[in-house]
Structures are given as structure tokens and as C-alpha cells.
Nucleic acid binder design. Structure first.
Length: 511
RNA sequence: GGCGCUAUGGUGUAAUUGGUUAACACGCCGCCCUCUCAAGGCGGAGAGUUCGGGUUCGAUCCCCGAUAGCGCUACCA
């Protein structure tokens, strides 16, 4: 292989046109999303066109809802397309199921030109050939028996109603193509079989339609998963048969799980929808995915907002080796963007999780003061989470204060058992009860100093009992943030009343 | 079995394309901050570049071979 850096992108020949061609058979997977992203980045970087084409020739497994979800996921990540379903384009339609007539015409052309032929072989015969080849340690290729059939005989048998598939005649020379990430790839011609173009059922096969579409849609660069490398020589032969220009290819490596197996649901969340649901920010996912298989020149920068990705992205710098998906690093990336996210958007995004917990009203039904209060709550809890869906867990005690459970917890019980803890609690409670107004952070701080002076207890022994009495836990955010949150929250009309400092103390002491 | 692709710390990527103490990030460990847990800041350990040959004054980088992982090998996509 030649170093990939030696290649130049051929921009001079005209506008770059790339496509993302998913099958709407399920949720969009990170691997495919990354393929889409690299296509999109490449197109945007060069001012080219990004085309979305739906590969729905597998009628049984394709569903419209998946197609809709797919498009939503792409948009969520920030990608748009210049041509595709629902968008006007010069090469419509963009769903393969609507292009069947086009494929048929092309097959007829190949047949009449003698580039393809009818194959009447049965499945059993083919299986026999395969077994034989395997036993003889030979490549498993079709013998080409029907290739020798005369035109009249072929036509006669077809007319007589005999079932046939259409096969392409593989040319008599090695098939090679240029890959922007791997260099030149060549397949000896004796290892590539005459591929079936059209099944005996009349349905064209994937490798065929994909090629016809790419050519007709004037795709200049085919960027896709490396599981297609072995298919490429067949596709190259199809281009040749039609006399079409062969595009450039870029085969992206596989995304692996931590066990170096292909990433799948078995490894955890893999669909874009599930990442969104758990509270991954789109910019974090996109940035992470961009780095998984690509590195900027120099390689020391990690944080790339989408616009800067467009600028920095070079297809020649895409890595050829498979990459392990690292959830930890994605989390780190998400923390980074969470920190940068402004309060308003954060509230917008985190809100549904709190509605689901039964703690907040629907967002559009919420008063402005509730909104403002919630934004402050988020400012306290978001910095300590990886994902947005973890925030309710962190903030649970704000809405759902359970003294009994807190007392039962082993470490808490030990902390509470000491004489000092009891003294502290008694002194603290006395101050709270003697004070009718809402408490502010300064007041609270003063109390703690007084309690310290009165009891002679300080440090952890001083704070832990109070913390348990107020939050149910011996650890958590700083009091000067929590106290105002409790006090102001208690004044709000919420589905679940937020207890004030005083209410917390009373409830804790009562149980 | 055949063909193809790949190979730098645990993970993702760098390395002026033959000359570096092999860099950065995640993770890990430690310290600081602090009532506490996180977060954050600072620092540290961790690879001599899969292995074996070669070319060269000198190889992560070039050549050959091996090994391993993965993919394709369908009238799946």
C-alpha cells in the first residue's frame, strides 16, 4: 500500500457529489452516522453536494417510520442534504423502490450489448460448484457455464418461461480501484465471479442498483464502510460495462466494541436516538464521531465545533484501521459541551426528564419563576454529570426528601450516632425554629459558625449531620447553593412541593 | 478454504513523510481546592511503534515474510 497522504482529491474535475445511502430497516447506528458525517463534512468542505438516497429495495424490512427517524437523526446532528427524499433534485426519485424501471432499462441494455447474460443455473448446481471449489482450495467463483449459451438458445429458454437470473460478464483483467484512505486496491480477476445483477424473481440486487444510482446521480466520491471493499471490484466491472467513469472510493474502517468485535447493541447504546435520549448533546456526539477514525493535522486538538470540523476535515487523513468506540471519552466530550451550553438551552433539554419524574409541569405550562429556578438548579447539578438523564438522580433529594431512608443508610447512621452529631443537630434545629423568615446563604453560614462556637464541633462532624438532615446524604453540592434553592423552591407551585430548610429539619427530626 | 483490509501505551489519534527524550486527548494514579461527593486545576505512571528478516550511517515511516483481528466469499443489504 502507498501512503494515503500521497493522494490528492481531484476537485478540478467539477463539483464534488457524495451520497449517504442508508437502508431504512432500523435505527440509525453510530457507524452509519459516522459514514454520513464524513460524507457531509467532505461535501461541505469542498463546497460540493451531499445527497441522501434511501436504499429500500428490501421491501420486507424497510419501513417509512425508520426513514423518517433517520432523517430526524441526521438533522439533529446538524446535517442537511442538497438532494434527497422530500427535497427537489435533478436526479429524483431518491428512493430505490421508485427507480425499478430505471434498473430494468439498464439491464436490457446490458443484455442486448452482450455485457450480461441469462443464467439458468439452479441453486443446487451453484451450491455444488461452491462446495467443489472450497474442497479444492480454489476461490469460490461461478463457473460461467451459462455464459457460453448461444443467443438463440438463451432467448428460447427465457421465452419458454424458464427462470433465469441476469449475470454480468466480468472482464478478462484484474479489477482495481483507487481508495482515498487505502491507496490502490487490486483484485485478481480469477477471484471475482460473474455477479448476479437481477434475481430470477426480477428484483435487481444491491450491488447493481447501488452502482447504477451512483453513476446516474453523478456521484464523484463513494464514501462508505469497509465491508464494501470486496464488493467494489464487481461494481467497477459494472461501471466498465456501461462505459461510465469509475468514481473515487473511500472505505471507512469498522467501529469496534471494547472487545474488538464489531460494535453492536450488545455493547450498549449504539443508535443515535438512544444517545439523544440519554442526554448526549449533538455537538458532543458529532465531535466524538469525527475523531473516531480521523485526526486533524498535528493531531493535538480535540474540540471541534461543527463549523470548524468542516474547515479542518480532510478525507486523506481518515484512518484505515478499525477504531474502538470509547463511551468514556464520549462522556468526557459531552461534559465539555454541557459546560459550554447556555442556561436556556440546557433547561430546554433537561426539562423533559423532570416532567417524567413528576417533579415539574410541562415546559410550556411553567411560570417564568419556575423556569428561572430550574436553570439555577441545573447550574448546580449539571457540572457533575456525564449525561443529562443523570441529572434527576443527582437532584432527587430536592424534590423527594426521605429522612427515614437517609437514617437507615449505614454510613449516615454511623455519622448520626455520635454525641457530637446530636449536639450539632439540636443546636442547628433551635436556630432554624427561632427564625421565621426564609433563610439565605449568609444567614445559614452565620448559623453554622454559631453552632460551631456553641458546641465546639467543627469540620466534618459539624457539617455532615446537618447535611444529612437537609439532603439525606453526607455528600453533595455546597450549602450556599443548596439553601437558596430549597428556600426559593418551596415558594413555587410545583407538582411536587420542594421542602424549605425548616420543613426539612422538622421532617427529619419527626421521623 | 480463497480474496481483501488492518496493525503506535488500556482506548482514540500525532509524529516537519528516514534523524523526536515517540506527542496530545480519554481513562488510570496522586496532589490541590473543599464540610463531603463530584466537577475543576496541577502533576505522574504507562508504548520504543505486532513479530522476524532486509535496505540504510540511521527506521514508527521503505521492501519481503509471518502472525493476529476484521470484512467479503448469497438469486442479503
Amino acid at each position: 500500500m502507498i501512503a494515503a497522504g500521497a493522494f490528492r482529491i481531484r476537485t478540478v474535475m467539477g463539483t464534488i457529489r457524495v451520497r449517504f445511502a442508508p437502508s431504512p430497516t432500523g435505527l440509525l447506528h453510530v457507524g452509519n452516522a459516522r459514514t454520513a458525517l464524513y460524507n457531509w463534512l467532505f461535501a461541505r468542505h469542498h463546497g460540493g453536494k451531499f445527497i441522501l438516497r434511501i436504499e429500500d429495495t428490501d421491501v420486507d424490512r424497510s419501513e417509512v417510520r425508520h426513514e423518517a427517524q433517520l432523517m430526524e437523526d441526521l438533522r439533529w446532528m446538524g446535517m442537511d442534504w442538497d438532494e434527497g427524499p422530500g427535497v427537489f433534485g435533478p436526479h429524483a426519485p431518491y428512493r430505490q423502490s421508485e427507480r425499478l424501471g430505471i434498473y430494468r432499462e439498464h439491464t436490457d441494455r446490458l443484455l442486448t450489448e452482450g455485457k450480461a447474460y441469462r443464467c439458468f443455473c439452479t441453486t443446487e448446481e451453484l451450491e455444488g460448484e461452491r462446495a467443489q471449489a472450497m474442497a479444492e482450495h480454489r476461490p469460490q467463483v461461478y463457473s460461467g457455464r451459462c455464459r457460453a449459451l448461444g443467443a438463440e438458445e438463451s432467448a428460447r429458454r427465457a421465452a419458454a418461461g424458464e427462470a433465469f437470473a441476469v449475470r454480468l460478464k466480468i472482464p478478462d483483467h484484474p479489477l482495481r480501484f483507487h481508495d482515498l484512505v487505502r491507496g490502490d486496491v487490486e483484485f485478481p480477476q480469477e477471484t471475482v465471479s460473474d455477479p448476479i445483477l437481477v434475481r430470477s424473481s426480477g428484483m435487481p440486487v444491491y450491488n447493481y442498483v447501488v452502482t447504477v444510482d451512483d453513476a446516474l446521480m453523478e456521484i464523484t466520491h463513494v464514501i462508505r464502510g469497509d465491508d464494501h471493499i470486496s464488493n467494489t471490484p464487481k461494481q467497477v466491472a459494472i461501471y466498465e460495462a456501461f462505459g461510465w467513469n469509475v468514481p473515487e472510493f473511500a472505505h471507512l474502517s469498522t467501529i469496534l466494541g471494547s472487545d474488538r468485535e464489531r460494535l453492536s447493541k450488545r455493547h450498549g447504546a449504539t443508535s443515535i436516538a438512544s444517545f439523544r435520549e440519554m442526554g448526549i448533546l449533538p455537538e458532543a456526539l458529532v465531535n466524538y464521531l469525527a475523531l473516531l477514525g480521523w485526526g486533524a493535522e498535528g493531531g493535538t486538538r480535540e474540540i471541534f465545533p461543527l463549523e470548524e470540523l468542516v474547515d479542518a476535515f480532510k478525507l486523506e487523513r481518515v484512518t484505515a484501521s478499525p477504531a474502538v468506540f470509547d463511551f468514556e471519552k464520549l462522556n468526557w466530550m459531552n461534559r465539555h459541551y454541557l459546560r459550554e451550553c447556555d442556561a436556556d438551552r440546557l433547561a430546554e433539554l433537561a426539562w423533559p426528564y423532570f416532567v417524567q419524574a413528576g417533579w415539574l409541569p410541562e415546559q410550556d405550562a411553567a411560570a417564568a419563576d419556575v423556569r428561572a429556578w430550574f436553570e439555577r438548579l441545573l447550574a448546580i447539578f449539571v457540572p457533575s454529570v456525564d449525561l443529562l438523564d443523570q441529572v434527576p438522580g443527582k437532584a432527587r433529594f430536592v424534590f423527594d426528601f426521605d429522612p427515614l431512608r437517609a437514617r437507615d443508610e449505614e454510613e449516615n447512621a454511623a455519622l448520626l450516632a455520635s454525641e457530637n452529631a446530636q449536639k450539632v443537630l439540636a443546636a442547628f434545629a433551635a436556630k432554624v425554629r427561632a427564625h421565621a423568615e426564609p433563610v439565605d446563604a449568609a444567614q445559614f453560614k452565620a448559623w453554622m459558625n454559631e453552632v460551631k462556637a456553641e458546641t465546639g464541633v467543627k469540620g466534618k462532624e459539624l457539617f455532615h449531620p446537618v447535611r444529612i438532615a437537609l439532603t439525606g446524604s453526607h455528600s453533595g453540592p455546597e450549602f450556599d447553593k443548596l439553601v437558596p434553592l430549597f428556600e426559593e423552591g418551596s415558594a413555587l407551585a410545583l407538582p411536587k412541593h420542594v421542602l424549605s430548610v425548616r420543613e426539612r429539619v422538622e421532617k427529619f427530626l419527626a421521623e
